Simulated scan of single mutants.
Amino acid sequence: MDTIRSLQYFVRAVELGSLSAVAREHGTTQPTVSKVVAALEESLGVRLLERSTASLSPTVQGRRFYERARGVLEEYAEAVADARGQTRTASGLLRVNAPVALGQFRLNALVQEFLRRYPEIEIELILNDRMADLVEEGVDVALRLGGDLPPNAIARRLGASPRYLVAAPSYLKGRAPLRRPEDLAAHDYIRYAWLASGDKVELGDGARTVAVETRGRFRVNNALAIRESLALGAGIGLCPAWLVQDLLDARKLRRVLPKWRGTPQELNLLYPSRRYQPLRARLFMDFVRERLAGFEG
């Protein structure tokens, strides 16, 4: 069995969703492609594709094998180019995952700049606030906020953004003044839902750290909703600079207790813990590291 050809046929079958399309692309016949893929399945002892008269799709095992096989083919192509003294052009699909707010305020513009630089690369940017399983979901690169990272990934720290207490001038007008952290207990505090620390907030002024209890009637599991609620005058919140700096600059928000800050929010670049990374992924990671170095406001 020609292993490389078998992998090529299988990978393209998953991507094109048709054995006939693979045959046309490779200048052969559909029965030939079907025979090669069937031989690959037999050698592995696993069914890789579900076939019907109307469609073709990978099985669960087939999807997992596809991700690895795609990497093998890309590594092989780079090895061939290197042996021939050629420089491969970065191309293909790159799957990137990031939190919603970070994607909107920072990453989306960087992706557009990256695509202009590398016209043969495609990017599928998936924005969600849950922790994605990079291997199971076929993610090439992920950006994650905070220090709670998955065990099956390699992380590279990009930086940390300071966190400020902020509120809208309309909220602060006519309310009890804030002179020390404990005064937060008398105010409406807006926070992220499901925090392990609950209503307790840890603040520092450079010399000491205090933990204070807050109160609030509104909690939400989305940073954009927190940002909007604060701008609408719903209360006080502790936010990373990257999320609210534009509103501070426009004076739509003000810093509260400016001598006190929360623990900085870390930003990490993650990729699956497999040895090989395609050229497009390595280029994207280098690009993001350069653009977000020191990650602050």
Rank of each mutant, 00 (worst) to 15 (best):
L7M: 06
V14Y: 00
G17A: 03
L19E: 00
A21Q: 03
A23G: 04
E25K: 14
G27W: 10
T28V: 05
T28D: 04
Q30V: 07
S34F: 01
K35M: 14
V46D: 13
L49H: 02
R51V: 04
L56G: 07
R63C: 07
E67Y: 15
A69R: 11
G71I: 13
E75K: 15
E78N: 00
A79H: 10
V80G: 02
A81I: 12
A81Y: 09
G85N: 06
T87Q: 13
R88E: 09
S91E: 05
G92L: 09
L102W: 09
N108C: 03
N108P: 00
E113N: 06
E113M: 03
L115A: 06
R117F: 08
P119T: 11
L127A: 13
L127Q: 13
A132P: 08
L134R: 00
L134H: 05
V139A: 02
D140H: 03
A142W: 08
G147Q: 09
A155P: 02
A155N: 02
R156A: 10
G159L: 05
A160L: 09
L165P: 01
P169H: 12
G174L: 11
A176T: 15
P181Q: 06
E182I: 08
A185E: 15
H187C: 08
Y189L: 14
Y192A: 02
A193Y: 08
L195S: 13
S197C: 04
E202W: 09
R208K: 11
V210P: 10
V212P: 02
E213P: 12
E213Q: 15
G216Y: 00
R219Y: 07
R219T: 11
V220L: 01
A225S: 12
I226N: 01
S229Q: 12
L230A: 09
V244R: 03
R251V: 11
K259S: 15
K259L: 14
L270A: 02
Y271H: 14
S273K: 12
L283W: 06
E290Q: 09
L292A: 04
A293R: 14
G297R: 07
